[in-house]
Amino acid sequence: MSTSQSSSKPASPPSQSRGSTSAASSSTPVDADLEQLLSREASAFQREMEVERILKSFKLNPYDILSLDFTAKPEDIKRKYRQLSLFIHPDKTAHPRAPDAFDILKKAEAELSDAAKREELDAAIASARTTLLRSLSLPTNLADDDPRLRNLGDDPKLKEQGLTTPWKIMLKEKIKEVLIEEEVRRRKAIKLNLANEGLEARKKEEEVASRKRKAEEDKVWEETREQRVDSWRSFTNNTKKKKKQKVAILG
């Protein structure tokens, strides 16, 4: 019975099968072209979005610009920079501010590749992290994947204080705050140094001007020496003549 049932099933018409295959094969180039076009448009859109992200990123934090974790190794930094620089290169995207984003990216990579600058940045970030943890009454040695940080927004005690923001966002904002404070202090120091340098420069200019005046006075003194001597001689002679005249009259 099973044999008769299977034999009674209608088979697909050969002509219909050939037609569907023909239609599929004829539509493949069109689909491929459409997919390629959509891919190009998506890629262009993604490039422009990445340019916008870099332009809006916090400029004092190169980790934020490169979208890297603070524990990134030097080779990770180089690799990520190469990827992003090729992705948003002004030659590859029509975004009008692509050159600006490219320059920002290049500066961020340079700062993270400079050992001294990165050490200073990491110290500021560590300070921000410690300060934030203390403000939350949490141990300062907690790892970012600690459950107490992952579930920070669900902590009833923190909810009572109105602290329901996820840890990474809170840390990002605290780092931003600390880096801005550091930048303000740095600029004040530069301004003070410039003021001190300006004061020293003015003192030096005054000393130079004073020496110049003294040299000119000495020169004038030397040039008028003979004139002064002649005047003194003339004065002395006139005085002697007057004395002789007085003595003669008295006699």
Rank of each mutant, 00 (worst) to 15 (best):
R211H: 10
E119C: 02
K214C: 05
N238R: 13
I249T: 01
S137P: 00
L60S: 09
A195L: 13
K157S: 14
K80D: 00
R134G: 01
E52L: 13
L136R: 04
T224Y: 03
S25Y: 04
L38D: 07
S127Y: 05
E75L: 03
K157G: 12
L179W: 05
T71H: 03
K191N: 14
Y63V: 01
D69Q: 15
S127P: 00
K176D: 04
L84S: 02
K240T: 11
I125A: 05
S25F: 09
M170D: 03
K188H: 08
I104P: 02
F102Q: 11
T224M: 13
L171G: 11
S27Q: 13
D144H: 08
R228G: 05
K242L: 15
W167I: 04
S22D: 05
K188P: 03
D155T: 05
R185M: 10
E119N: 09
A32V: 07
K106R: 13
L194S: 07
K241G: 07
L199A: 10
P96S: 07
E75N: 04
V178S: 04
D64R: 04
K159R: 11
T236Y: 09
A195K: 14
L138G: 06
S15P: 00
E50A: 12
L163C: 00
T165A: 03
L138K: 10
A215Y: 07
N196F: 04
P139F: 05
I249N: 04
L152H: 02
R186E: 12
K219G: 06
D218Y: 00
R213W: 05
E217M: 03
A201W: 03
E206D: 11
D64F: 02
L34M: 12
K168R: 14
K73S: 12
K176Y: 00
E109L: 01
P13G: 09
L152M: 06
K214Q: 15
E205R: 10
R213E: 09
T165K: 08
I180R: 15
T131H: 08
S12K: 13
